[in-house]
Structure formats: structure tokens, C-alpha cells
Design a protein around this nucleic acid. Sequence first.
DNA 1: GAGTCTCTCGCCCTCTGCTGGGTGAAC
DNA 2: AGTTCACCCAGCAGAGGGCGAGAGACTC
Length: 655
Amino acid sequence: MAGTEVSDPLEQFTKIKELEMMPEKASEEEEEKEKDGVCRVKEHPRPGEMEAECTPGALQTGIPGGGQGLALATTEDSEKHVLALQAVHLSSDDVALQEVGWLLPQHQAGMQAVVPQTGSGLQSLLWLGEGSQQSLHQCVAIHLHDEVYSLQEVELMEFHVLEEHVAVAGEDSKSAASPDEGVGLRKFERGQEEIQPPAEGRVDEKQFFLVEARPGDERRNEIVLTISNLNIEEPEDKPASSQPHVGKDNSAKIQNKTQGKRSFHCDLCMFTSSRISSLNRHMKTHSTEKPHICHLCLKAFRTVTLLRNHLNTHTGTRPYKCGDCDMAFVTSGELVRHRRYKHTHEKPFKCSMCKYASVEASKLKRHIRSHTGERPFQCCLCSYASKDTYKLKRHMRTHSGEKPYECHVCHARFTQSGTMKIHILQKHSENVPKYQCPHCAAVIARKSDLRVHLRNLHTYRDTGLNCRYCSAVFHERYDFIQHQKTHKNEKKFKCEYCSYACKQERHMTVHIRTHTGEKPFVCHSCNKCFRQKQLLNVHVKKHHNTNFIPTVYECPKCGRAFSRWNNMQTHSKKCNSGQEKSTTSGKGKRMKKRKPAIPQEADKRDEAAAEEAVLVNGERYPGEVVPVGCGETIVGSEDLEEDVTCEMILNVLDK
DNA sequence: GAGTCTCTCGCCCTCTGCTGGGTGAAC
DNA sequence: AGTTCACCCAGCAGAGGGCGAGAGACTC
């Protein structure tokens, strides 16, 4: 993937500009190249060039207008490929080729191309080997949309990439001889003799290219196309990034191109100019010489203009003031841009795939990545890749743990400013915004959480939710829950033998035994039967567990014994106030047995069991008695709505 | 050669939305 | 006491706005 950035794991993100290809990444690309037989163009940008460079491998094509085809020669540097066009007359047979509409993205210096123009506009761009007088059948083509030629526009275009059998002279001829190995795009070489016609190729894949058209030389009626391949990789044989070494004489080269016009070409980059003065001025950009020093901060600048702009930052001089607001800028261009953003809202860069438009071209390029899915900026520590540098930098905080944003109130730290802002709003602000659910009374602090609420509770479900207690069916969870609440206090289980009703089925099961006389729980020691398991457990504990030590709570005043602390406390208060008549007038006397507040029938049948639960070995010891409750739930009491524990029964018996 | 304009890159910001852990109430 | 669930909250990423500044082109 072109433009992939890989940073040194040990380096801070701010060093990403100096990144180099990872060895393993490079080897992967090498393998890929060998596997698919495609000779890809690879680039190694200079330090600082790669960041945010989304379109390596761009083609820049000057296209003189006219009703005839145009041949062009290419030069290239690490970023763009310049194709100088040359007129070519198309025959009627050649015109048919225009409908082929294929792209051969491989191109090298010396390659030539043809841009036929028919009808209302250009349709195809055909590339030829140098010596362009060969047949147009020996070429491949780019099919272009007509809209591309509306000037000053950037288009994202989808091309069908043609894989070709290309017989390449020299070293490549061997591979070309084998069809299997020769399938794929081949680098054009100077003087190559044979190129298979496009019709014999096959469609390999679709690729997205960014095509930008802008005016060229008006005198020659030129259009300049910049075709940026979002996928092309860099040439491995190109030297890795190195600081340009400026030589006064040998850096620039004067070249005579196809039209015989002199052009001046920079050897260090793709810069070409028809004027030597321009080239000389350009060469200064490769120089590290910065003779203009700021006397305030000693920062050096290459030109006087740059120094002056810099000085303005010290003095606050901003001569270009906005007439519609208080903003002011150092340059007029900044003012114009500001006005477009804030006041005129003029957005000349329009996306061809959606309604998005932007003030700046770079914003459109960034936006287009959301269509193509291109993520040029790869995290060196995980698989994440971002579409722009800022997101990668922000992502790197997840690895470094950096939390640069601090709440000024509680000093909590956050990775993103927005998170801190929400925190302050929710935690430290008085007028916290709330979001009212439109379907219920819920008021939720965050809009995103309201969305979750709506999704969970108010989203229609195809499969209805069935009520456990009735036949009602609901398709919204909120309605279902509300309905369930209506059953909350409902005694839906009714006894078929008496008027008893209860809320829980298990209660009814136990109750029914009072009618049937069923006692399914049998003591294995004495064969005594019990209607409830809990009663059996108490029985076993009291009668057959030799380790059982009952706890006694004794009234400090009268000495009455209780099995439960709270009962003793209640008694003790009455005893102290004189309300409670002493029922334990004498130690060792039996406590008067009281009828437990349990159903009458249960009382009859379980009296013995209740007695077992209260008395230890049928006797109360003087000053004690403590059949301690086991804590298990005992159910089935007809006059008790809630679950009854063993302690509760004992409590009743205590009274 | 200097000044100006235009384009581009890079950085930072906000807004937005999703996700998952924590928590407390209800069951 | 355990489970479920709604809500709270921070973390994190996507998308886009805005501006500072550098560099090339153009004009005088």
C-alpha cells in the first residue's frame, strides 16, 4: 500500500516524518511483487515528504487541446510522473481503442502516451513506448470520464487495470516468454519492440485514481492532468531518502524534449521549467542555506519574505484584516481562505461521489479517503492505520498512556480534549444537559446513551416477547417490562381446594400438600415424615445431630430464654416497662405453647413438627431452650404472603 | 530581485458516535 | 446472595473545520 508510514516503536510520534520502511514490510512487498508478476513502481520519499502524502505515483500530464491524439513523454520523481504530450493522428481503427478504457499504470521515463480526443471531450489516454510512431494497438489506455476536463476539479475515478502480456526487451524478455510468468504489467523500457495490444489483456482489478485537471499553458491551450494512483508503491531500487545535495552546476539538466523546446530540469526533483531563472530560484529550495536571520529569536530563513512573515509573528503585524470579523492575517491568501471558511462559504472542491465540498483541495483528498478506505498512516505498534496524521498521533496515546488534558477542577486527566470537556460538563457544571427519551420518562445524561436506551428498550423486535404470566406478546422491550410490572403484586396462583392464593408457584405446591396430606420428606433415622424439607432439616438437626449446640438469648431481667436475639430484645423492653407479664415464673417451667400463625390445617398436621422445631427433645431446659432456626426458607403458610424462614416459625412459637 | 498570489502541507481543534467497564437498583 | 439490566462514564476513532507556514509561480 502506497504511503504506508511506519514509525520506529522507540520513537515518539513526532519523529514519524523521519520514518523508513520496515524490513519486513519491504520484504512483504517484494514477495507480493514476485507473486503477482507485477513490476510495481516504488518510491522512497525524502524525510518529511511522506507524511500526509496520499498520492504517490501521480501522473502529471500536459494535454494540449485539439482534435487529434497526443503523444507524451514521461519523466518521474518520487511523487509525480510528468508526461509531455505530443500530437498523434488517430486513424478510424484507433478510435475504437478509445472505448477499451483500460489503464496500464506502469510507466517509466521515456514512455510515451497518447491522448485521443474525440467528440465532446477526451475519453482515453493511451500510453506508448518511446518512439511513438508505432501502432496504437501497441498501447494501453486510460478511460477517462468527461467530467475530468472541467478545470479546477478533482475527481476520484475508478479504473479497470489491465494485466498484459508484455514482451520486454533485455532482461525482461525471458519472463515475457513464459505466459505464466509474463502475465501482469511490465515496466516499459526504452526501445521496447513489442507490446501486446490491450484487447489481449484481461481485467485484473479496479483501482481508484485521483484525477485533477487544471489549466496548463494557455498559449498552447494546455490542460494539465494530475492522476494520482492511490495504490502504486514505491520503487525499491530508488535510493532511500537522503538529504538533497545541492550542486551549483550538475544539479540541473537542460533537456531538449519532443517538441524541440528547451526545458530546464532539476536533477534532484521533478521540477522542470522553461526559464533558467526559475530553475535557479528553484535550486535554492534544495539548499540548506538560510542567510536571513531573525534578530529576535535567531531563527534562520531562506528568503527575505519568509523572514518578514516570521517577524510579523513577533510583532503581531497582520496587515490583512477581515472586513466581516476581527480576524487578521499575515498574507492575503490566508485572509481569502478565512473568508471562504467563515463568511462566503465558497467551496470550490467538490466530491464527485457525494455532496461534500471543501474550501481546500487537501480537505477533499482527505475526504476521498473515506470513500476509498485508504489508510496510509500505519501504527507501528498495532494493526491500526489512520487516514490522516492527526488520528495516528492521537491513537499513539493509547500506547504511550499519555493524557495531555487535565480537568482544572478535579485534575482528572484525559486522552482527548473532547472527553475532558464532557467530563467537566457532566461533573462540574450546574446546568447539565439532559436528554429526554421521546418514548418514556427516562432522562439520560448523554445523547449517545440515549441512543443505547432507544436501541435496547424502544426498538421493534420481530420476535415478540411473551409474558410469563399471561398470553400478552410485546415487540418492544420497554412495553414488555412495563407489562410485567402489572403482574408484580398479583396472586396469580390460586388453590383449587380452598381460597388460598399466592404469588409463587412453589408456595402453592407446598400448600396443596396440606390438602393431599402428602409428606414427601422422610427422616432416615426415625422415619418421621414432613411436608417441607426445611422442617425435616430442623428435625434432623435437633434430634439426630449430636454436635448441635443451641444458642440461647436470655432476658437479663427475668431470665426468659429466646432462640432469637430480636425476640429477646422485644421481650426485654416490655419486661423493663412492666408490660410483659413473666411467663417464666420459675426456671424449668415449660413455656406455654402457643399456636403458630400458620394455616389451621397445617397446624393440625404439623403441630408435632412445629413442636419438634421448638423444643429440644421435647423439653425446654431451664433458662434456655433454643431450637435455632436453620435459616432455610419454609413456604406454604396460608396466612403469610412472604416466604417464611425457619426462624420465623420459631419466632412465632417463641411468642 | 522583491513582492504578491496561489497552492499545499501539517497541525490542532471540535463534534460526533460507538464501545465496554463500573455501579446501583430491581428482581 | 446472585443475576440482570439500565445508566454513568471514560476511552477511542471518524469526519471535518480552521489556520499557520512553506514553496512555487507570477508580476513588476
